[in-house]
Design a protein around this nucleic acid. Structure first.
Lengths: 370, 370
DNA sequence: GCGCGGGGCTGTAACGTTACAGCTTGCGAG
DNA sequence: CTCGCAAGCTGTAACGTTACAGCCCCGCGC
């Protein structure tokens, strides 16, 4: 019923009668002279210059063995001379390969956000590859799964890097189910292996407690990451393990996390310090949060290094300038970026996920000038 | 002359003997049933579902007037139902439009880097557009022009955002010459109009000096940005203008800029404060740098708010926690990101560059709790 | 002298999209 | 009745790349 009319597909062409099947070839074979014109060189340009076919040029450029060695060299020489760069859209359309890695980011304001370092790290690694870095954002009101689904569904990248990983992360489940290459900043507790890089927050918290215990502190509090996140548990477990080891008592410091606003952390800390048995030592999971926390402590009229000691993780190196009495452990987020980038690419190239898992040991607990 | 070869288009297909040119019909006209199969829907899928031609569907989806109103609605309905999303590679290959904005970044470690905010701002704006954000890095040893040239030459983005703008910026000249849409964070002194967003560093420095003069400070120093950058001059001129207005003397504080390392700034500040006539007021162009500078001041045994007053610009809001005696002026980098994104897109859409220039007035000089 | 194999190269089609140049059909004017 | 025209739809080619299925020719075995 909705068939088109009966005429053949090519009757408007100037062509050839019946039995055309053998003909052609010859002159039609070479790309015409216009290829030589302005604009970016394409395979066609090189084909024209070398007198070869586009296919040959394509194969020669990727060192295919069925192209003669001399031809290969000749093509590569010409390609280099004219500054040939494969057209990404062409490759992508044909092969589905995007040569893009997507970094999925929560764009909420985060104090002391280490996102720049992460990006620098990733860029640093990608610079030696043909990959580009694309930033895919989501905001609090959106489902964190949404950007991931978008990238996977539209195939707009070959791999994804996510952070703020949860123990049972649905983004991870989704990507695993879809066989999509990804690496997470932080571990999960999902059975299936996947690529990750993580800072050893368990060890960090242990070392921090050990330090405070060594300083003679008895009542310790932990300013932890938000409880949904994986590293909340790592840090908390490390904290509790060491607390038990040293026989110390925890002063609860919940209702607030390293992700809360400066005002909130500050107010809550003040409150905490004014209660009957305030902590005399705090382990802080975030550099920015430590600023706010110290402010709260001082609001209460107490002094860091005297009334209380603090061991804090930091990614920017500003805490010692802030209060020299603070003890700090540095987290190298740039390194994390590099590792994550390396992992996704390796994964894309077929490496097994289990071999792409790394844990970054915390450096020593540093006092002032160290 | 460049007619296609003479043979029929379908000789390798399973069909049809000689004389095929008239026949064929039927099945050839409509996209075949396989279009219906799995995978992402394409125009072909919708064409098949609606019984229309691919062209019609394409036109209908962009509301072309030559498609009947009812057809248009029908196509759009189906497209929505099946979750059609144009294939970016297809569009890009055909039209050259990438729907990508490139943010060109120096990946040097910068203290207190505001890059995250910039990215958040850009993302925030791009979220309501079809554009993606791609980060194109360069490191110190590379020519800053290189990434720009790369993007322009390979057409890997429709527009570029750059920062660290210089008065006679060669990247800007290059993009102007090539008619490539771009927006700069910071102004230039190049004759040709171009899109920019800038913080009014002249006004900032003026207000800062005014504040310090009001506090009775007489010998002021300026911790400025690196001299090649445009905003070095703005800030410096604002500083000097106000100094003259209030009849104050400048204490030279060169050989160091807001971009130097913490150690360098700290050491240089100590040195400065130990000289015969140290400044009793400082204007600082960078939040991170102020941390280091204050450390240097305190190394010299002096106290901020007593021996010396400081007015500093900041993008993260940590300075008041650091030393409550500091006076601060906030710079909203996220806003800058939003503005810059808005500008490039407008430019791409044909708006005149002269209408896409904005200057962000500094907020008031804030004391402690304010 | 012929057939065969393979090295070295080739064209075609396809990925999904859009610009372009038609093709129908219906309708009103002549 | 024919023509012209416009509305509405159509197929083809092309963007640059790669998978695929050849093609040609040479040298070798028999």
């Amino acid at each position: 019923m909705d068939k088109p009319s009966d005429k053949g597909p090519s009757e408007t062409r100037p062509g050839k009668g019946p039995g055309a099947s053998g003909g052609g070839s010859g002159e039609g074979g070479r790309p015409d002279a216009r290829a030589e014109a302005a604009g970016r060189p394409t395979l066609k340009t090189i084909a024209f210059m070398t007198g070869l076919g586009v296919t040959t040029v394509s194969r020669a450029l990727k060192d295919a063995p069925e192209i003669g060695v001399e031809t290969r060299r000749r093509v590569q020489l010409v390609a280099r001379q004219v500054g040939y760069r494969p057209n990404r859209a062409g490759v992508r359309l044909r092969t589905g390969k995007t040569n893009v890695i997507s970094l999925v980011l929560n764009t909420e304001e985060q104090i002391g956000g280490f996102v720049s370092d992460m990006i620098y790290g990733i860029s640093e690694y990608l610079a030696q590859t043909p990959y580009h870095l694309i930033v895919t954002p989501y905001s609090r009101n959106n489902d964190p799964l949404e950007p991931v689904r978008y990238v996977v569904e539209t195939g707009s990248a070959d791999g994804i890097i996510i952070s703020r990983t949860e123990p049972d992360d649905k983004r991870v489940r989704y990507m695993l189910e879809h066989g999509f290459p990804f690496a997470t900043h932080g571990r999960t507790e999902i059975g299936t292996e996947h690529a990750y890089h993580d800072f050893d927050n368990h060890a960090f918290a242990q070392e921090a407690v050990k330090k405070l215990a060594g300083l003679g502190r008895k009542r310790l509090a932990l300013l932890a990451p938000p409880s949904p996140l994986s590293y909340h548990h790592h840090m908390r477990n490390g904290f509790l393990d060491a607390m038990e080891e040293f026989g110390l008592a925890e002063v609860p410091f919940n209702t607030v996390t390293v992700d809360h606003s400066i005002e909130r952390i500050r107010a809550r800390t003040l409150q905490l310090m004014q209660r009957p048995n305030p902590p005399d030592g705090i382990v802080s999971g975030g550099g920015g949060a430590t600023f706010a926390m110290v402010a709260g402590i001082e609001d209460a009229g107490l002094k860091v290094g005297t009334d209380i000691d603090i061991v804090s993780k930091q990614s920017a190196k500003l805490l010692h300038l802030f209060r020299p009495e603070l003890y700090v452990v540095n987290e190298d987020v740039r390194l994390a970026g590099r590792e994550l980038a390396r992992s996704v690419i390796a994964l894309i190239d077929g490496a097994p996920a289990a071999s792409l898992q790394s844990l970054s040991a915390p450096g020593p607990v540093l006092a002032r000038g160290e």
